[in-house]
Amino acid sequence: MILYLLFATFIGLLYHGIHRKAIARVQGRPGPPIWQEILHTLKFSFKETWIPKTASQSLFIAVVFVAIGIWSAALYVLLSGGSLLLLFGIYLLHKIVEHGMGLSSGSPYGKFGAIRSVISAASELPLLVTIVAVYFFTHSLSIADIVAYQEVHGPLLIVAFPAAVAMYLVILSKMHYGPFSIIEAKEIVSGNMTEHFGVWRAGLQVGFALKTYVLLYAFVLLFIGQLPFVLMLLVMLLILISLSFVCAVTPMLSPYDTVTVQSLVTGALVIYIIILGVIMG
């Protein structure tokens, strides 16, 4: 179990590295080596570490533990075929981690990152719409049931294509260097992660690596179905590289444009669900 967690962390960090490399190649730069993020994490973990004097001490540390904990839990929910609603819940709880991370330090940059993370709460709504759309087809929110449904009726990617697009957007909004990653924009230093340095940042890197692994795994599981393990990793990598292309060619949006785009997508999906409801009764 802990071995699988370490493996997922490793793969997640490797995917982050590949993401950076792909973006760099699209933009005509050489880019860092693909294991750069693994080195980053190790480097941060060797740095001298303390807690800023202005920080809210327990919270400052606790968010790092919570960040790793919730995504480990999400991985187990996925692997054991638990409730999709629980996965959605964990995704939303990640927002609290981001928010708490920024607020706990006392730094104005962290605070701006935290406020931006709350503003982009609109990015959660497409995921909710995805869940409702999936429920329309499968009549169950248990991941095991959804996988079983796809074995009989074919992948949901085809029958529920708009829902897959929404989920894709959700993953995009959590990718680094993407059009929606306003919480870590460079004009506010590192956003909500500004004051988490050293071991704390290494811990966050581990949590975020698990997050990337879980989100990509969930996408494949929900919309394509259960695949052999190596093929699963390969499909995840392909999705990641498509995301890298999107990240490479789009500029970062301003905070309010982010909300507008995400709300428009949600609105379109709500109309889709209403149509689905009328057609399917």
Binding site: I2, F65, A67, G69, S72, Y76, V199, A202, G203
Partner: peptide, 16 residues
């Protein structure tokens, strides 16, 4: 789930 974060953080704290 409870032990893994502690494992990661405290091992890193040890070697840093």
């Amino acid at each position: 789930i409870v032990a893994f974060p502690a494992f990661v953080i405290f091992v890193a704290l040890w070697w840093s």
